[in-house]
Nucleic acid binder design. Structure first.
Lengths: 228, 228
DNA sequence: ACCAGGAATCTGGTATACCAGTATCGTTAT
DNA sequence: ATAACGATACTGGTATACCAGATTCCTGGT
């Protein structure tokens, strides 16, 4: 009962390399198809090849890299089937969460969600896209937690990941954000009235908005997509 | 256009170690809490520590191992929150698949699904649990594929994995299998009539049957569960 | 000018050695 | 007998060297 040091969470070279590469790939500083050399990255970070190798493995498991024996490791491109699948799973989970939420929703939850919505309206009025993105994130997270399924949000994040990397290519317009807030209000209202079917309908409409954006990006950046 | 060698799919030492350990863990030959030594496994397989290390990493990413720096690597136990989450996600996906299926179901699909059901009835009558398990697997897989979401089945398998490892502890009774077939018939009927709500209801009943089994196993084998 | 062939140079996979924390257990002081 | 301590035998993380397959590109022949 002595080591009350909270955790310290030892940080290893692998973590450093992993996070740096993850950021570069997510922000498209490393574009799909780019070749990554273990040796090159290693010297660049001042470590040996081994930690780099481990970091590569992690990134491959997250679907961001493609590693083949004796071939160069490359950044994976987007895949339309994969994106469609992520969307499918996300919708499935969000709807199930809403269903669970409708069964237990109460006024206290309602109040907390309305607080978030109020701030969404504020930042959208100001045109602060960055802040809206953060509140949007919180909105869905809050619903998961308050519905009793905090882990579901982690699963949703998994689904979002592939799309997020894609969305840095989209120019986010303010009018789009306004529509999304309207959707959120609809979802909140359905929860408040505990009408699962209405919530599902609103959610489907909400997520359908992404489709056109993705199609636009596909048309504009076919080179980032895998041929399959 | 010369290398038409189908694929050969080069098999590496990492794969060998990974698969062997994966099987041992899945079949509970390696029980939760068991300590795995890189060096020991390495000499046991006649390879160096490096491939073993890589295999460990893969297993950790699949949630089967717990690796901490400077601590022994151990087989992870079951976690009730994790199992509940896997169940939640699986139900969400299966229902969404059924919903999509109901929108496009036709007689040809119906015939193929009925073929599978007929074989289910046969093997259950014979009490062949092994064959039923395989047909059960196919049943859900067929629905995913015929609903136009083959990838969804892969996601479902991910969810099943943690539960499957648990289910080797359950003594499967024949009467249970009979009930499961009845559920399948209900689901197939709902699809045939393209009634999404009925399909959802049947699916929920189907998956609810697992809960009692899991509770039984928990009561009987608390030592395999993580405390969290 | 072009193309075939092969050497030089990549790639990731493997083996080995060493390091710094951690756990274990025997020893010693009380 | 017991409890504090310390040597020792572990653990996983890192660095390095080497290997075989794949790629690249230069060279020599046409």
């Amino acid at each position: 009962m002595q080591k009350m040091i909270p955790k310290a969470e030892r940080r290893t070279s692998i973590d450093a390399v992993f996070e740096a590469l993850h950021d570069d790939i997510s922000s498209l500083k490393l574009v799909p198809g780019a070749k990554l050399s273990e040796a090159e990255i290693a010297s660049q970070f001042g470590v040996s090849r081994q930690p780099v190798r481990d970091a590569f493995t992690r990134l491959e498991n997250k679907g961001l890299l493609l590693i083949r024996p004796k071939k160069a490791t490359v950044v994976r491109g987007f895949s339309m089937p994969e994106i469609a699948h992520a969307r499918f799973v996300r919708v499935a989970i969000e709807i199930e969460v809403l269903r669970a939420g409708c069964a237990i929703w109460d006024e206290e939850r309602d109040v907390r969600l309305q607080e978030n919505l109020e701030r969404q309206r504020e930042v959208v009025a100001k045109g602060d896209g960055e802040a809206f993105h953060s509140l949007d994130y919180d909105f869905h997270k809050m619903i998961c937690h308050m519905s009793g399924h905090p882990l579901a949000f982690k699963a949703i994040q998994e689904c979002k990941r592939s799309v997020d990397r894609l969305c840095v290519l989209s120019l986010d317009r303010k009018d789009e954000a306004a529509l999304l807030v309207k959707d959120h209000e609809e979802i909140a209202a359905a929860l408040s009235e505990r009408r699962a079917d209405a919530a599902e309908k609103a959610a489907r409409k909400h997520f359908a908005r992404l489709d056109s954006t993705i199609d636009e990006i596909y048309a504009k950046h076919v080179e980032f997509f895998e041929e399959t």
